[in-house]
Amino acid sequence: MIRKTIFAGFGGQGVLMMGYIYAHTVMNEGYHVTYLPSYGVEVRGGTANCTVAVSDEEIASPIASEPDYLVVMNKPSLYTYQNRVAPQGIIFLNSSIIDTRPTRKDLNIHDVPVGDIAGKLGNPRVQNVVMMGSFIKKTGLITPEAFLKGLKQILGEKKKSAMEINRKAFAAGYELEI
C-alpha cells in the first residue's frame, strides 16, 4: 500500500502544517512516511505545497507524480495540480473560496467549506484543521483519536490553550456529511 497526498494553497493557510501534522501522526501509527515541502523560489509569491507519502513499506520516492489525494485550499492550486491526480483520485476542495470545478470527470470531488465552518467557530486560522477532519474521515487510514494525539504533540505545551479550538475544528470537519 502506498498513498500520496499533495497539500496546496496560499502561504498562510497552514498548508505545510496540514501535511506536517498528517505525516507526524501516520508516523506515530507505525507507517513509513516522507514529507517533502516546496522550497526556495517556488514558495516566493505566496503559494505553498507539500507532499506526504505513506506506505507500509520503504518509500522509493517522496515525490508524487500521481497523487492519490489532492487537498487544495485555493483556486490557483487546483489549476496547477488537478491534472496530476491519479485516475479516480480524490480532491478535497476548499469550497468556501474555490468557485470552479475541476475539468476532469473521473475524479471524486469532495467539497469542504472550511472558511464558513471556521468562521462559525470564530477562528479563521483553524481552516486547515477543519480540512484535516474531513480528510482523515474520508481517507480512513488513521483514527481521529490518533490524529488529535499527533496534533497535541505538535502544538506542545506552549500552545495548550489552542488545543480546544483545534479539537472543535477537527470535529466539525470530521462530522461533515460526505
Binding site: Y20, A23, M27, H32, V33, T34, Y35, L36, P37, Y39, P62, I63
Partner: peptide
C-alpha cells in the same frame, strides 16, 4: 541532494 535535505522521515 535537495530532496534528501528537504524531506522529512522518521
Amino acid at each position: 541532494d535537495g530532496m534528501m535535505g528537504q524531506m522529512m522521515e522518521p
